[in-house]
Amino acid sequence: MTTFKLIINGKTLKGEITIEAVDAAEAEKIFKQYANDNGIDGEWTYDDATKTFTVTE
Rank of each mutant, 00 (worst) to 15 (best):
M1Y: 15
M1H: 15
T2M: 11
T3L: 04
T3C: 02
T3D: 14
F4C: 01
F4S: 01
F4D: 00
F4P: 00
K5C: 02
K5Q: 09
K5P: 01
I7Y: 12
I8V: 13
I8K: 01
N9F: 14
N9H: 12
N9C: 03
N9T: 14
G10F: 05
G10N: 14
K11E: 06
T12H: 15
T12G: 12
T12D: 11
L13P: 03
L13F: 12
K14G: 10
E16F: 04
E16K: 04
I17F: 10
I17D: 03
T18S: 10
T18N: 09
I19L: 05
I19C: 01
E20P: 03
E20H: 02
E20A: 07
E20G: 04
A21M: 09
V22A: 14
D23E: 11
D23Y: 11
D23T: 13
A24W: 15
A24M: 07
A24E: 04
A25F: 12
E26D: 14
E26T: 10
A27P: 00
A27T: 02
E28L: 12
E28Q: 07
K29P: 14
I30H: 15
I30W: 13
Q33L: 11
Q33M: 13
Y34K: 14
Y34P: 00
Y34W: 07
A35N: 07
D37G: 14
N38D: 05
N38V: 02
G39H: 10
G39L: 07
I40Q: 07
D41I: 09
D41C: 06
E43W: 05
E43N: 12
E43K: 09
W44D: 00
W44Q: 01
T45G: 05
T45M: 15
D47I: 09
D47K: 13
D48F: 06
D48T: 06
D48H: 13
D48E: 07
A49H: 14
T50Q: 05
T50F: 05
K51D: 02
K51L: 07
K51T: 10
K51E: 03
K51N: 11
K51G: 04
T52Y: 10
T52K: 08
F53D: 00
T54V: 06
T54C: 01
T54L: 11
V55C: 01
V55N: 03
T56A: 04
T56N: 09
T56P: 01
T56E: 13
E57A: 03
